[in-house]
Design a binder for these strands. Sequence first.
DNA 1: CTCAAATACATAACTCGGTTATGGATCCAT
DNA 2: ATGGATCCATAACCGAGTTATGTATTTGAG
Lengths: 235, 235
Amino acid sequence: MSPKPRATDVKARLVEAAIRLLDDDGPEALQARKLAAEVGVSTMAVYTHFGGMAALVDEVARAGFLRLSAWLAEVGETDDPVADVFSLARTYRQAVAEQPQLFAVTFGQSAPGGKRATLSDLTTEEGREAAQEGLVAFEHIVRATERAIEAGRFRPVDKYQAASQLWSALHGFVTLEASGHFGPGEQGIDHILIPLGVTLAVGLGDTVDRARRSAGAAVATWRARNGNAGQGGND
Amino acid sequence: MSPKPRATDVKARLVEAAIRLLDDDGPEALQARKLAAEVGVSTMAVYTHFGGMAALVDEVARAGFLRLSAWLAEVGETDDPVADVFSLARTYRQAVAEQPQLFAVTFGQSAPGGKRATLSDLTTEEGREAAQEGLVAFEHIVRATERAIEAGRFRPVDKYQAASQLWSALHGFVTLEASGHFGPGEQGIDHILIPLGVTLAVGLGDTVDRARRSAGAAVATWRARNGNAGQGGND
DNA sequence: CTCAAATACATAACTCGGTTATGGATCCAT
DNA sequence: ATGGATCCATAACCGAGTTATGTATTTGAG
């Protein structure tokens, strides 16, 4: 009745191979034949486990969100919620910068086959799950925003509304930076992202002075945690 | 020596058909055979005029930027530069909302074949031209920002830097909205985009009061120009 | 322990879509 | 008019997703 499938890990290995090949060789590496060869199985494995390439790609997208959520979760909370917002932004950006191909898929910018119109009308079940994971990542921003409001740094507006503003700005920056605007390396961070964060914080109610100090605190935290590289670093 | 090619318009007709089919049938309609059939030629026309589908798609992307630039140019300038920023944002959003498929291609979110890693390493000549057109669209935002600084509404920061902040936020909002977040219809505009604009304006130096008035003025201008629909409009 | 059902997967063929090879028709300059 | 180049129709090629089919292996039941 319920012949539990053998505990092989072919499914997981396919996704792992997909992510690895994706970052190494670009989106065109996301091919059933290549992945199957990499894992050492036939292309049929893709269909028994996923039903098709689309679902496998959605699973890769979901993996991106999961990785992002995990990374954002590591940021943690300090007693300066605005600094935490900056840290979340820096982390979000770093994740995308380190695995641009993966997040291009995750954000639907590079769907092999040109599918995926909007996140709302996703076809596969895996796709809907991926969208859910995206909301989990968003929750981290909501939390920090909420604390900033509670701390009196932001005006008492709806936290989801304020968080959506921050998310829009952050996501837009990351997207445009990944597209090549704002120059290579860390340029965009100093010239655009941090000033953008200050602008938003001030616009949401913080003072210029406190916002700048929080930005500086986040930078210090970042350097302490990731080494003070990134000066001449080309990523 | 210079056998000027016959003045047929097959090339333009192919791009037009691509845009039309794209909006009607989605990205999967961007196929050499479908386009050729639509125009009434063979697939070879794609290769004589573009060299391949990739270049044709880049031309479609460029058409999106051109359309966006043209639309933004129509906004014009009033004596309230901050209101003009709101109007530009509203227009930018509207263009994407009306032709989401086109701009998904333009912004590289839906490249048939899964190409296009970053805008910086575009392969085809058309692709580079498309990127150039994107900068033209950006210039409209720079102009309005510059005038806002000159008018004393924004602090005297670098206009490109300030405009990049606005652009990031705007582009992020539009992208996320097109992905289905912020709900359908005009919801996102009232709940997120306009508050986001106020936040940014205030953060850049404007007062809350003046920023809100400018937002209101832009809304009034928009309604006057496009009819006061959009109340229950589902786009 | 045996057996039936279901799962996992190999092999190979099918389909669709981008691309290329080839040849003919048309247009322009000389 | 004629040579060369462009445009494009026909048809074949090729890569990649998918499907058809068969087999082995695992699982649960008796």
